[in-house]
Structure formats: C-alpha cells, structure tokens
Design a binder for these strands. Structure first.
Lengths: 180, 180
DNA sequence: TGATTGCTCCGAACGTGATTCCTTTCTTCA
DNA sequence: TGAAGAAAGGAATCACGTTCGGAGCAATCA
C-alpha cells in the first residue's frame, strides 16, 4: 500500500511537471478508488513492475497530483447522518476570517466561493437537523451574513473524490459555427 | 499503512455495533486526514499498541465506519481545474436510470436528491467551461430534465471527506422554551 | 463473595511487501 | 554513429503489517 512521504523528499517540480501519460493516469484512476493496493498488484494492473509504479507514485505525490491518502468515513455510521448544502449571501467583509472559523468545525466539509445568485456554498454534514439549526445560528452571528438557503439531502446516489478520467467528448464544439 | 481486507473476514456486525468510544473516534479522526500512518505511529497518537489499533481499525472497517481508503487527487493538477455545482429540476421519471448513466462520467463527483426548490444537486469537476456546457447538453438530452441552474466555483477554501468529530454544542436547544 | 467467561490489550515472532540499489534498455541529441 | 539521460526490471534489504499467546480487567452468575 502506497505509503505517504517516508521516502526522501523529491523536489516539487511545480508547474514544470510532465503532462501525465497513460500509465500515470491509470495509476491515478486505480488509487483514487483504492489506495490500499500493493505496488505489485498496481503494477500488474497497469503493466509495470512494482519498483516502476513505486517510482511513478512517488513522483505523482511530489508533483502534487496526489494530495494525500485518506480513509473515507461513512457519515451515518459515524454519527452524522444529516447532510445539507447551504448557500450563503454575504455582504462585503473579511470572508477569509469567517471561513477560517467555519473550517474549524468538523461538520464543515466544503467551503466554496461561487458565481451565481449567491456568494458562498457550504457542504455540511452533522448529527441532526437540530445541529444544522445550531450551525445556521452561528452563521448568522457572524458579521456580513445576509441570508442563507439550505438544501437538505434526502438521498445520495454518488459521492466520491476527484477521479482521474476525462471525457474528451464533452469538449467537442457544441455548435457547428466553424470556430475559424 | 492500514491495509484493506487481507485479514480474514470479520463478520459484519451490521447495526449491532458498539457506539464508538474515544479511542475509535480518535483513530477515525487521524485516518480521515492521513491513512498512510503506520499502526505504530497511530498507536502512539491514540495511546495504544500497534496490535490494539490494528484490531480496532479492522473492526471499524468491518462495521462500515470506514468505507475504504483512497488517494485524493488534485483537480487542477490532473487536468480538471473547473468545478461547478448544478441544481437540476426534473419532472417525474426514472431518476435512477438517469443517475446511473451520469455516474459513468468521471466528471460527476456527487449526485444527491435534495429537498428545496430543486430536485437534484450535482457536483461536477471537468476540464473547462466548455466541458460543463457539453455535460449540460447531455443532461438536457435525458428524459425528464426540466431546467438547470449552475454555480461555478471561483475558489475553494475547504474540501475534505467526512470528519470524525462532532460539535456537541450545535445540538443545544436553540430556544429556551423548556421541552419539559 | 468468589469463580468463570469474555473482551481487550500488550510483547514478541513471523512473513509479506515496501524500498533501494544496480544493471539494462530505449530514446534523444550532438 | 556515439554519448547521455531517463526509465524499467530484477534482486536484495529492511521496515511494517499481521498473527499468536498470555495477562489484566470487567461483568455475570452461583
């Protein structure tokens, strides 16, 4: 199972990283689904030896393609069966201070600044609707919070971390008005 | 590093599982942040020996508290810098067929059925705004899709998988109208 | 109160797999 | 055509996951 750091630090290449060949993308695809694979198994799936995939995974970590490996907890099974998305309207003000305070709560899973009819989108997972109420109360106690609109999740059909695959077909020009 | 299965199958206790003591919750908290910890390191952090935490992690897996361990990929670094949430209005119809088709796309990260002024909420990560356009085009080609409203993410301040912690204070009664 | 049962923890030993080293091969550039 | 760099494979080493046996502890029941 691909270990975190532990190997000597490989200098972060930053933006000068190469463009991800097929091997890399296959490795990423496998690890995004199950990071508990042995290098031998991973190697046989992508068609490389264990040391070779080890080298590539090390590089994928060093270049920031892999941010880390985590255990995925089950919300309901760990006491937080209640999931909601909260749109927030804010008036100007120091959003980063507010966000930092929110991020302290383990109930907050995502905080995005979005374009649309609201400013901010939160993903909240908590124990009950009462806990959401408590969270909203805290929200309104913060400066610059104008309004919220909550979407309570009734059932979840899919929930996963970023995947490696890219559907090329989505990029095709939608209209046939010859770009040039 | 906590391995997946591999150990003999421990009978899934289903709902009869115990209520998660402090050790369990600490272990979950650590693994939700970094699943690459060795059992020895994990043990020293929670105050147990390696075999003891191994036993507990095995149980946490068997009882479904831990759904799996995955590598967290970086969207921009893997070619998908564009993130959006799409609210979808559907008229009755077989949603599960539609959802299954959508889940095939690696661009789809989340599909929730929600309560509110829309029916469904999608989280989409793709290569560009054009790809989102292509995805919306596919959406409208599906039966029962009435309207969509998209929120394009400008910047992400927090994004993580479910955490183990629970903020008890959120559960406190919001009003002082003595329940009894 | 005392004995028994079950559970969980720890120390030590074992085996597997991660990690490294080195050689070979392929590609690229002079 | 020759040289240099990168990358993959094979083998060896080493760390860690995993198991085993025993001890401590709490709860149950006689």
């Amino acid at each position: 199972m691909p270990n975190s750091e532990k190997t000597e630090i490989v200098r972060d290449k930053g933006p000068e990283a190469r463009p991800l060949d097929t091997f890399d993308r296959t490795i990423l695809g496998e690890l995004a689904v199950d990071a508990g694979l042995s290098y031998a198994e991973l190697g046989s799936r992508v068609g490389l030896s264990a040391p070779a995939v080890h080298e590539r995974v090390k590089r994928l970590r060093a270049t920031g393609r892999i941010r880390g490996t985590v255990a995925v907890l089950d919300g309901p099974a760990t006491g937080k069966p209640f999931l909601a998305f909260v749109h927030v309207d804010t008036t100007g003000g120091s959003k980063s201070r507010t966000f930092r305070a929110l991020a302290e709560l383990p109930e907050l899973e995502e905080i995005h600044s979005v374009a649309g009819d609201t400013c901010t989108l939160l993903k909240v997972r908590c124990a009950s609707s009462r806990a959401l109420e408590g969270l909203l109360a805290r929200l309104y106690a913060m400066p610059g919070i104008k309004a919220t609109r909550s979407y309570v999740v009734l059932s979840t059909y899919l929930e996963r971390t970023p995947q490696a695959g890219i559907t090329e077909a989505l990029e095709e020009p939608p209209m046939d008005e010859a770009p040039r």
